[in-house]
Simulated scan of single mutants.
Amino acid sequence: MTTLKESRPAPPAAGKQSPNKPQRRARSSTIIVTGLLLVVALYFLAPVYWVLVASTKSTADLFSTNGFWFAPTFSLWHNISQVLTYDGGIFVRWFANSVIYAGVGALLATYFAAAGGYALAKYEFRGRNLVFGTILAGVLVPGTATALPLFLLFSQLGIANTYASVLIPSLVSPFGIFLCRIYAQSTVDSALIEAARIDGAGELRIFHTIGLKLLTPALVTVFLFQLVGIWNNYFLPLVMLSDVELYPITLGLNNWLSQVDRLPEFYELTTGGVLLSIIPLGIAMVILQRFWRGGLTEGSVK
């Protein structure tokens, strides 16, 4: 009778890792990264949640209840009504001004950035690197450093305290030109441009029909950066504008906030106005994010 020996797995060879070790290490890395992302998301979303909760409270409830939970009295609709009707609806005027400043400024700045980045990427001319280096230097200059010189210049030109005094500085985006140049170098094929030239297309037509289409993901990024930057801009309108009816939302809400010591009801107006002011940015992000997803899959193959 032959005896069957119990089969045992061979011990792993020296220097070889167990196949389960990489899996456990990858799982641990995933947990750590997910935890960090949750902390970052909480950091950014907590103020938004606080604004949402605060906008539903009266002034008394705002200071007598938990800041991160709703009060027994739900005053959101009353607060929003007060925001929209106070002082003849001045908030609506501020909101329209912000739409003009941010919408028109971001749209034109994106177009100019696309044109500049496309030209720097696809045209050979003397001094191209010098121009690009100057633009990169412009990225390092903060807007607060140029606000006062611009005010003095616009005052001499007679356009201070006008829509143009806020719009014109918003049309320049050094970061947008930098991003569009890098993206155009990697996505716009020179052979495609040469083929369009052979077919008789002019340079402007090539840029508008081929260049802008291929640059769409970069343009969405530039547009959102400019939209958020102009919408939240405070210092430039503060320096340029003295007429209350030309104020954007940021300046108008700060004007209300400065009066809370004298009139506590301005707390309700300020929190309600802040809630309304963040809605357009959220809508823009939701609508335009699909273009980002489309850009990430460009050039992929099955």
Rank of each mutant, 00 (worst) to 15 (best):
206 I>Q: 11
204 L>Q: 09
186 S>I: 03
192 L>G: 06
181 R>M: 12
193 I>Q: 10
203 E>V: 10
181 R>Y: 06
184 A>M: 12
200 G>K: 01
188 V>Y: 09
190 S>T: 13
201 A>H: 04
180 C>A: 15
187 T>A: 14
199 D>F: 07
200 G>P: 12
192 L>Y: 08
199 D>L: 11
190 S>G: 09
185 Q>R: 14
201 A>Y: 01
198 I>Q: 04
199 D>C: 12
185 Q>A: 13
198 I>R: 06
190 S>K: 08
198 I>T: 14
181 R>C: 13
194 E>C: 01
195 A>L: 12
205 R>L: 05
191 A>C: 01
185 Q>E: 15
178 F>P: 00
185 Q>L: 15
191 A>E: 09
182 I>F: 14
180 C>R: 08
189 D>T: 10
200 G>D: 05
202 G>R: 05
186 S>K: 14
193 I>H: 04
193 I>T: 07
203 E>Y: 04
188 V>S: 07
179 L>D: 02
191 A>V: 04
195 A>F: 06
183 Y>I: 05
182 I>Y: 11
179 L>N: 04
191 A>L: 08
195 A>Y: 02
190 S>Y: 05
189 D>I: 11
206 I>E: 10
205 R>K: 09
184 A>T: 08
202 G>T: 11
202 G>P: 06
179 L>R: 03
194 E>K: 07
202 G>A: 12
201 A>T: 01
177 I>D: 02
194 E>Y: 03
187 T>F: 13
204 L>S: 10
182 I>G: 13
193 I>F: 01
183 Y>T: 15
185 Q>G: 15
183 Y>D: 11
185 Q>H: 13
198 I>K: 05
206 I>M: 10
192 L>P: 01
201 A>W: 00
202 G>V: 11
179 L>F: 09
179 L>H: 07
188 V>C: 05
199 D>G: 13
190 S>A: 14
202 G>I: 08
198 I>C: 03
205 R>P: 00
185 Q>W: 03
180 C>Q: 15
177 I>C: 02
177 I>S: 02
203 E>R: 12
194 E>H: 02
206 I>W: 05
204 L>A: 12
189 D>C: 07
195 A>D: 07
197 R>L: 04
203 E>T: 11
197 R>V: 06
183 Y>E: 13
178 F>K: 02
177 I>N: 04
193 I>V: 14
192 L>F: 04
181 R>I: 08
189 D>Y: 03
202 G>L: 09
197 R>S: 06
188 V>R: 05
185 Q>F: 13
196 A>K: 01
185 Q>T: 09
188 V>I: 15
202 G>K: 08
201 A>N: 10
192 L>V: 10
178 F>Y: 14
199 D>H: 10
195 A>V: 03
201 A>K: 05
196 A>P: 01
198 I>P: 00
194 E>F: 05
189 D>G: 03
205 R>I: 00
197 R>Y: 00
186 S>D: 13
197 R>T: 12
186 S>M: 13
199 D>T: 09
198 I>S: 03
194 E>L: 06
192 L>K: 00
198 I>A: 03
177 I>M: 11
186 S>A: 15
193 I>A: 01
193 I>R: 02
198 I>G: 00
198 I>V: 15
